[in-house]
Design a protein around this nucleic acid. Structure first.
Length: 382
RNA sequence: GGGUAGGUGGCACAGUGGCGACUGCACCUGACUGUAAAUCAGGUACAUUAGAAACAUCAGAGGUUCGAAUCCUCUUCUGCCCA
């Protein structure tokens, strides 16, 4: 159940109740594609850094260890020892990211496994069955994510197919949720809006999927090469056409600035690999901009990553030490960086919610952006 | 003292007549948005230069050759074996 607590312009402060607990929004979901947050981060760590929702991937878990294995072991929650909400992505994004390894048909998509090359078929029904076996809190509809550079005709055809796929997802999900031996009979289904950067296609698609009555609505196919201005424009034009009584999820986005801009335009859910991947690569988010710990200038820097940050990395370790760990390829280096970045994102979301609660989001957003930009320059980063 | 193998960029190695020198590591920098990503890309070897371009370099010296890291001579240094 989705309940809006407060509004400021289009921005919403809400809560979303699920069988695995209440999600306070706006929220940033922490990405753990293969049921693991890369960088040696445990579920215990997630509890400490304030993670509300973990995100895993249908395609990846189907390939390894296999959704049947996870079902046999009682579902994802039990498998990875995480009892809060989990959202599973449908494998739709892999239709885009594994472009060289798949073929799209009306019935679904034929992949070649990125692990061993074996042929895999996934359509709407398969994706729903896998997600039902995984027993995630929220399942995503199986969609196609066209490239931002795709031609209009291609996007029209693709979006039409994604709509047909959504109807099939819905039907299959209802069937699965009614079965006696289904682990999570209250699994939720979020639809995904597509249309690249064509406003009219996006809006038309939003109207169509709204009619199918899903538990939430996502914007997909953004931050895949188009400019930030185009992305913000699409969000602004499309969100008003999605059901107002359901949460809105901007898939795969993004930078702290992207999130602030999208919250302002009415988005509730986010996820992105940035904090984890950038953490592994030594790029750290701070309130004074982004820093690259691999840079030689941090060799003797005794300050914490972000002054005043109470995360497990900043509480006791210096930039110089963590830089050394990264250069020495010690796991601890990545782990500390990922923990810091996730803490930064999760904390920013808490601050956003607090600001919305108190009706000062606009001011918060302005100050946050200003702080990160201003000192980014100070740190030698734009 | 005798024998033997060898000295190539910060390190380790390749190259044995057309090289202004391969590759890896290290170092520097950049990229990464529903994770084929602890990955990928570029740069860095003497001096000069913002950069480009040009000009160097293969232990040292001399020689052979149109042309030498590569062949010859001497010097020097290092490893290993024998005494």
């Amino acid at each position: 159940m989705y309940r809006i607590l407060k509004r400021e312009g289009r921005a919403k402060r809400a809560e979303f109740t699920t069988v695995h607990g209440v999600i306070q929004t706006p929220v940033f979901m922490n990405v753990g594609t293969v049921a693991a947050i890369k960088g040696a981060v445990s579920t215990e760590d997630l509890e400490q850094i304030g993670t509300q929702v973990e995100l895993s991937n249908t395609y990846h878990l189907h390939v390894r260890p296999g959704d049947r294995v996870i079902r046999e072991l009682g579902g994802l929650h039990k498998f990875m020892s995480w009892n809060k909400p989990i959202l599973t992505d449908s494998g739709g994004f892999q239709v885009f990211s594994l472009a060289g390894l798949r073929r799209i048909k009306e019935e679904g998509v034929y992949f070649h496994s990125h692990i061993d090359g074996r042929k895999i078929f996934m359509g709407p029904e398969e994706s729903m069955r896998i997600q039902s076996n995984l027993a995630s809190t929220i399942a995503m509809a199986f969609d196609e994510c066209p490239a931002s550079t795709a031609e209009r005709k291609y996007v029209e055809d693709s979006v039409a197919r994604t709509t047909r796929w959504l109807a099939r997802c819905k039907r299959e999900m209802e069937r699965l949720n009614s079965l006696d031996d289904t682990i999570n009979k209250k699994q939720l289904l979020f639809a995904i809006n597509q249309g690249a950067v064509f406003d009219d296609i996006r809006i038309e698609h939003a109207k169509q999927i709204a009619e199918l009555g899903c538990d939430g609505y996502a914007l997909g196919g953004l931050a895949v090469g188009e400019s930030h201005e185009q992305m913000y424009h699409v969000i602004e034009e499309t969100v008003p056409w999605l059901p107002a009584d359901k949460p809105t999820y901007l898939m795969g986005v993004g930078t702290p600035a992207n999130i602030l801009e999208a919250v302002e335009r009415g988005v509730d859910f986010f996820d992105c690999v940035y904090p984890t991947r950038n953490g592994r690569h030594g790029h750290l988010y701070t309130n004074r901009g982004k820093i690259n710990l691999f840079n030689a200038k941090y060799e003797l820097d005794e300050r914490p990553i972000d002054e005043g940050c109470p995360c497990p990395a900043c509480r006791r370790y210096s930039r110089a030490y963590i830089r050394h760990l990264l250069k020495a390829k010690e796991m601890l280096g990545m782990r500390l960086c990922v923990l810091h970045n996730l803490y930064f994102y999760n904390t920013m979301m808490t601050e956003i919610r607090d600001a919305l609660d108190e009706g000062r989001f606009a001011e918060y957003k302005r100050n946050k952006l200003h702080g990160m930009q201003k000192a980014g320059a100070e740190n030698g980063n734009a």
